[in-house]
Design a binder for these strands. Structure first.
Lengths: 227, 227
DNA sequence: CAAGTATTCAATAGTTTAGTTGAATATAAT
DNA sequence: ATTATATTCAACTAAACTATTGAATACTTG
């Protein structure tokens, strides 16, 4: 095999991974899987894709090593193959956010809270949480919280936010997070909390990044994942 | 615009970047551009693509913000739009190397030197170079060296390696680098130097990574880039 | 201004991909 | 065993991508 063929072949292999990242549905699947393991039909329901289509996308992701699966009983559970993948997704998001005009436009028009206050960096949250200065709020659905969350975080899924305010210490600052740096849940939560006159900020990124950074996490109370 | 539409649209935008990375020729173009600015016809010649095809690929890369171009006289020069892109490419390579079986097989069968000796990390090279313990060898073509290289590195393009041995201090260890972590030039150089009985190692990655890490570089003696 | 070069545009054919549908397989529960 | 559920497979259509070709555009040089 010539040096030229090798190079071509190597780039072709890298391109396979790129191709796998080249579809919005697959990226959405990856974001959900990054929250914790998920079965095919859970993913199909969340994304709104058919089971067959979901399965096909998952197999593409698996073929390029982005996810792994494990059969348990009737279901097949998919997980990210490693934290490398979270880094790759963040790199992709970062480049898109900083260099694709459409992304910037989308974010600033839709995520109105975006620039009103800088999001809180991970390390800073860690310091403040340690000093007991803030309430850390996980606004993801209960199953995702159960699969793993920032140590000490309180879970109030977005839908129940207003009903559960009594569970929060209203004097302390609230820092909300969700699935990732562009997930709408935390933006939405911060906007609604501020409307209620509370001090609220957003963590700069989501649970997968927190976990990948090696920061302290807890896993849920072994809740069964029913729907 | 609903939250769901926003999410879909956002993932679709991220996917555009993924798609752009989903073709081996485009990845090869990016690697060349990462060495320094390049005109369309230079890139066409190096890659062996037609000018029209090269132009089309470059425009795709430009549309998703991976590269930028600047017209100067008769030629259009392309550059990476920022160092973010190098990080993204490295993340892609890393995931592929660690999780795609075919990539690992390719690398271990073709790059025979691969596991004989650990490649040298950047920081370690920096320390040793500072102490004057090693000769840093840039084995890329002269134009790429001229466009920028590791501070203090000697340039001997691979083709002239054996002819230019006299330029090297044969008693010191030689550390070779080239375009990136999987570029064959440095692997090849190390193999050939060792065959000649010299002490040679490979830098763990290439010039773009070195530069992006903020380590010291030099740019060439304003050579005109003719062919 | 004319000629030459570099780049881009437009049209095309062949290939690949996305998503749908219906069926096949495998496991669990009755 | 039979039934139900979860997942995958296979076949198909519509859409998108790649690379080629030839022409058009823009700039420089003589």
């Amino acid at each position: 095999m010539s040096s030229h063929d090798f190079k071509q072949e190597l780039f072709a292999q890298f391109a396979r991974v790129g191709k796998a990242l080249g579809n919005g549905n697959r990226l959405e699947l990856l974001e959900f899987i990054a929250q914790g393991q998920r079965s095919v039909d859970e993913l199909a329901k969340i994304t709104g894709l058919t089971a067959a289509n979901t399965s096909q996308h998952l197999q593409q992701l698996r073929q390029v090593g982005l996810v792994e699966c494990r059969k348990q009983g009737l279901k097949v559970y998919y997980t990210l193959s490693s934290d490398d993948v979270i880094g790759l997704l963040d790199a992709l998001r970062g480049v898109a956010e900083r260099h694709v005009a459409d992304v910037d436009r989308l974010i600033t028009t839709y995520l109105t809270v975006k620039d009103e206050l800088e999001p809180l960096p991970r390390e800073e949250l860690l310091a403040r949480a340690h000093d007991g200065l803030v309430t850390v709020l996980d606004v993801r659905p209960a199953e995702e919280y159960a699969a793993g969350h920032v140590a000490g975080a309180v879970n109030i899924p977005l839908a129940e936010l207003e009903h559960c305010l009594k569970d929060l210490d209203l004097d302390r600052e609230i820092v909300a997070y969700c699935r990732g740096p562009h997930c709408v849940l935390a933006f939405d939560a911060v906007a609604r909390l501020r409307k209620l006159g509370l001090k609220a900020r957003r963590l700069e990124d989501g649970y997968p990044e927190w976990k990948t950074a090696g920061l302290p996490i807890e896993t849920g109370e072994m809740m069964d994942k029913h729907d």
